[in-house]
């Protein structure tokens, strides 16, 4: 398939320089089984700078996961153009993708799960093994090569998935609610680790989340989506380096948080079909 990047040193786990992502007039609709056409993404124009960390937030069904799949090249836009660097996206190890439900191959060891991303690309076995080992070390899983996913905790599984996404030294890292199914402590640890990794290597990150706090902790820029469109594009100027323990102390944080919350609440209330926050808000007596 796509040619693998040159490999100077198997132990080198650095990502390629973060590449910019551009959406120009991108729309994508799905045809449901009953023939109904639903717009998932509508006329999105978005310019993401190299090495930027961008969070996509919005109620369920707002099109943020579709946008991520468009950026990975898993989906083709109906109209408009997408570019990673200067080329249209093509699925492959040069764009790393991390899913909420880990998506590890259960019958493969940790080593073979991570190596899967580079199989069939002409790397010889020893080299692949070395790269996998270095990558596992980087995500804090040295020595776990021979374990199977069923033997790992949720946090460790997501580290394996992260190693798989990183092993191709991607310039772009796409993350679809990667920490949503982890328990609260593990989530904070993973957030800090991701921040540390991003600060060191600076890939461009597009991070889908439901959590306002997560978006504010991680991102340079929070994009609020609703009904398939970009509704707000909010720069976050909280000082870096950030960590989950101290980021919330900044005075600006609570203002941003309040603002984003009210924005998303309005979105949910405007859309009775959205099931995400709706019930919760109504239980508070604020339902519309």
């Amino acid at each position: 398939m796509s040619p693998s990047p040159p490999v100077p040193d198997a132990g080198d786990t650095s990502t390629s320089r973060g590449r910019g992502i551009r959406f120009a007039g991108v729309s994508k609709a799905f045809i449901a089984g009953n023939g109904a056409r639903t717009s998932a993404v509508r006329e999105v124009d978005l310019e993401i700078a190299e090495q930027q960390f961008v969070a996509l937030i919005g109620p369920s069904g707002c099109g943020k996961s579709t946008l991520l799949r468009l950026a990975d090249g898993l989906l083709e836009p109906d109209t408009g153009r997408i570019a990673i660097g200067d080329a249209p996206p093509r699925p492959g190890p040069a764009i790393g993708m991390v899913f909420q439900n880990f998506r590890l191959i259960p019958w493969r060891s940790v080593r073979d799960n991570v190596g899967f991303a580079l199989e069939g690309r002409g790397l010889d076995g020893t080299e692949l093994k070395q790269r996998v080992q270095a990558q596992l070390e980087q995500v804090g899983l040295a020595g776990w090569d021979d374990h199977y996913p069923a033997q790992l905790s949720g946090g460790m599984r997501q580290r394996v998935a992260l190693a798989r996404a990183l092993i191709g030294r991607p310039g772009v890292l796409l993350m679809d609610e990667p920490f949503a199914s982890l328990d609260a402590q593990t989530r904070e640890l993973m957030q800090d680790d991701l921040l540390a990794l991003w600060e060191r290597q600076r890939p461009t990150v597009l991070f889908v989340t439901h959590s306002v706090d997560e978006a504010l902790l991680l991102a340079d820029r929070v994009i609020v989506m609703g009904g398939g469109a970009v509704l707000e594009d909010l720069p976050i100027h909280l000082p870096r380096p950030r960590r989950s323990t101290d980021a919330r102390r900044a005075a600006e944080y609570s203002q941003l948080r309040e603002h984003l919350w009210s924005r998303i609440r309005d979105l949910v209330l405007a859309d009775p079909a959205s099931a995400f926050f709706g019930r919760h808000v109504q239980a508070d007596g604020e339902g519309g």
Partner: peptide, 9 residues
């Protein structure tokens, strides 16, 4: 889908 995203044939 995961396999497609890593570019597997």
């Amino acid at each position: 889908e995961m396999a497609r995203s890593v570019g597997a044939s």
